[in-house]
Design a protein around this nucleic acid. Structure first.
Lengths: 225, 225
DNA sequence: GCGGAATTAAACCGACCGGTTCAGTTGATG
DNA sequence: CATCAACTGAACCGGTCGGTTTAATTCCGC
């Protein structure tokens, strides 16, 4: 039963240089992840069968189970990869050396753009949907995703509070406020399927600009109010 | 096959006053809705079986299918009932005659309190989770729920814009901003299961107060800025 | 306490699920 | 070109699902 799962991490060195050990070919792994991503994101978690995934990824079901222990692990692997890619891109924008408002604008625009991608919307839907039954999936996703972004933005705000540009008691909280604000009228309707296509660049920029205006007014240093 | 579904709406008048016609006893209907609510909200949609529901509601599976056409209709019926109850309660608070800030405080507090109820969180999770596969469920939920609240709040804001207390170009949009703001740090983590218990009254009031402060600053009439 | 309708419990259906197995094919290596 | 492991395809397993059927039972107005 466990034979397939506990692939005993075949030491790279005793592989004869040529063909990758079973379940270790990175190219095939990507092939599976991408196929599975398409299936999961269009069908949801429960309604996607591993047979569907195998077909879409052009891989036999047997191979699927060599690369991934089970359906849940396959799904979390997909999430992890996409999430880490997106998050690092987002966080790199929070440069405290550059002008405050322009950084915030770029940052907000990027966050909102990524959150609007169909795949990302689908992933959020799935994770939220299974959170009741599979809490670890939900918490891990949240903590390695949204929470990290909020924390990083909080630190960024700290810097500008210290510089006197803002007056914020709880910068982490303010960060979550900003991140909620930019999503207004855009993300929620998409989550529920009331809107089916991503917002235009204009809508995104308008949302971000409005959020920045409101936050800077609301958290302006006391002497400026 | 359809016999059970197309219960030909037995005209009330030719029922002999006594026992309710099959599938029409409101007490039994409630009994089913409540049992099903408990099952769905703790197990999710896909993972709940109709047999589980029947057991929890202390009703036979056959009866279940006399009262509700299928699993989806049962679920949407639950949503509809709860939603309509909650929404009408919320909207009744938007009294334009009472003081602006206190109404907004009460309103925001009530919205946030309801959104934090375990059952409501579970319902949102489910609807979002199935939105990809069952778009009608998601859109109906959104439009008869969040959208109505935003619209009503928008109208409320209109009134106070006219009174010169605020300066808002798009009040519907501002309403969605306010509704997102009050949820900051509270609702999202719960949706993902990173927080498992409802917020305290203090947290709620703090969130609402902060949201109001930010919004009034951000949308203050120009001469006050 | 009879008659008829609502309800029940349980068996049943076909479909499909996640996951496993295995005989056979492929393809790089030496 | 022989070898050997990775991979394939399809059958297969036990289990569960949504939904239906049926025969027995409960309930209630008369």
């Amino acid at each position: 039963m466990e034979a397939a799962h506990l692939t005993p991490e075949p030491a790279r060195e005793d592989r004869r240089g040529g063909r990758p050990a079973a379940g270790t070919d990175p190219q095939k792994r990507r092939q599976i992840l991408e196929g599975a991503g398409r299936i999961f994101s269009t069908t949801g978690f429960d309604a996607s069968s591993m047979s569907d995934v195998a077909r879409e990824a052009r891989v036999s079901k047997a191979t699927l189970y060599v690369y991934f222990q089970d359906k849940e692990h396959l799904f979390t692997a997909i999430c992890a990869e996409r999430r880490d890619r997106n998050i690092s891109e987002i966080l790199s924008l929070l440069d405290t050396e550059k002008p405050f408002e322009s950084v915030l604008t770029e940052f907000g625009t990027e966050v909102l753009t990524i959150l609007s991608e169909p795949f990302v919307v689908a992933a959020h839907r799935i994770v939220i949907g299974v959170a009741e039954r599979m809490p670890e999936v939900g918490t891990e996703f949240f903590e390695r995703g949204p929470k990290r972004v909020s924390a990083a933005l909080g630190k960024f705000l700290d810097h500008h509070v210290a510089a006197g540009r803002l007056e914020i008691a709880d910068t982490y909280f303010a960060a979550t406020q900003f991140l909620e604000l930019i999503q207004a009228s855009i993300i929620r309707p998409r989550l529920y399927g009331a809107i089916t296509s991503p917002p235009t660049r204009d809508e995104i920029e308008k949302n971000v600009a409005s959020a920045i205006a409101i936050m800077t007014a609301g958290y302006a240093p006391r002497e400026q109010r």
